[in-house]
């Protein structure tokens, strides 16, 4: 029965072609502006740092008691900390916790927010009202105080736990935005046509609505990463979270409160290195966000 098998194969190869065209399009979009390539490079750098960085260093970073708060030099590009540990090594090994938290937060906020927003906007009626009241509730929760309270009982040892809490606190805004997008999209002809054809709701939401919102969702996701990084670094900086492992927030805290980086220039590199890392990460993400619209819009992608 080779005859019946053929069209199926054709369908598969058609899908493969589509996928290939998509990635080619993405490449084209990224190459259009050097800034985008720079953004991708920065994001890739951080990804590598998060995944492979800690493997480059021994489990316990070596201390050098002769060089406490050493100024930047060839062997210590960002100097050393109060124990004589290389700051660059601290930044690299500390990145995993920060990035994992950011990623987990982003995934949870976007998944929850998109699901709630899509469902509420598409169904309308009482489901909409209920979900939107829930969203209001979520938006009304004061995040920082709640985290302070939570930190008294919870140690946030795993970055995923931290990400989960931040994510559960932060999906409200995306839910609102996605809902309003859904409300306007569902009036579009192609959604109405899909309903008229009797296509299942899962198809309409997953295949018709979601792709139209993809740039929007992707942007929100990237921006949520930066938001989560700020939030957790802030918490560690304030010292409200007990820290077991090294991370950027901890470094900031120690630099300012133990090293007196705001008053003594010796600890300044120790303060600036994690700040620079955060700045660079944000910059990378912002540069990539710029390409999202063109990546997910077939017309802009092809041109």
């Amino acid at each position: 029965m080779t005859v019946t098998a053929l069209p199926g194969a054709a369908g598969r190869s058609r899908r493969a072609t589509l996928r290939r065209n998509f990635w080619r399009g993405v490449w084209r979009v990224l190459r259009r502006k050097p800034s985008r390539m720079a953004g991708v490079a920065i994001c890739a750098l951080f990804a590598v740092m998060g995944v492979a960085g800690p493997l480059l260093y021994p489990a316990h970073l070596p201390r050098d008691d002769d060089a406490l708060y050493a100024p930047p030099s060839l062997s210590h590009p960002f100097g050393t900390d109060f124990e004589g540990t290389d700051v660059l090594a601290l930044v690299v090994t500390g990145s995993r916790y920060v990035l994992l938290t950011g990623l987990a937060t982003a995934v949870i906020t976007v998944a929850l927010g998109t699901a709630v927003g899509l469902f509420a906007g598409f169904r309308r009626g009482w489901q909409d009202t209920l979900l939107m009241r829930l969203t209001d509730l979520n938006l009304a929760i004061p995040g920082l105080p709640l985290l302070l309270v939570l930190s008294t009982v919870w140690k946030f040892e795993s970055p995923l736990e931290m990400g989960l809490v931040l994510g559960l606190l932060g999906w409200g805004g995306i839910a609102r935005a996605v809902r309003s997008q859904t409300l306007s999209l569902r009036e579009r002809g192609f959604i109405e046509a899909a309903r008229g054809l009797g296509l299942p709701t899962t198809h309409i939401i997953g295949r018709e609505l979601l792709p139209s919102m993809a740039p929007y969702i992707a942007m929100n996701m990237l921006i949520a990463v930066t938001g989560a990084v700020y939030a957790q670094v802030g918490l560690f900086f304030l010292g409200v979270l007990p820290f077991e492992a090294n991370n950027w927030g901890v470094m900031l805290n120690l630099a300012v409160f133990s090293g007196g980086a705001l008053t003594t220039p010796a600890a300044l590199p120790y303060l600036l290195a994690p700040l620079l890392a955060i700045l660079l990460l944000t910059l990378g993400i912002v540069l990539v966000v710029d390409a999202m619209d063109e990546i997910f819009n077939p017309r802009l992608r092809e041109e």
């Binding site: 002809g189 192609f190 008229g196 009797g198 296509l199 198809h203 295949r207």
Partner: peptide, 28 residues
């Protein structure tokens, strides 16, 4: 009502811009 199909006024919004014609026809 599936036996009565609507042809919308605006062919620009009646097709999903993110889907190829093949995908658009394949689903129904």
């Amino acid at each position: 009502f599936r036996r009565v199909q609507m042809i919308h006024q605006d062919p620009y919004s009646a097709l999903n811009p993110t889907r190829t014609i093949h995908q658009t026809l394949r689903a129904p």
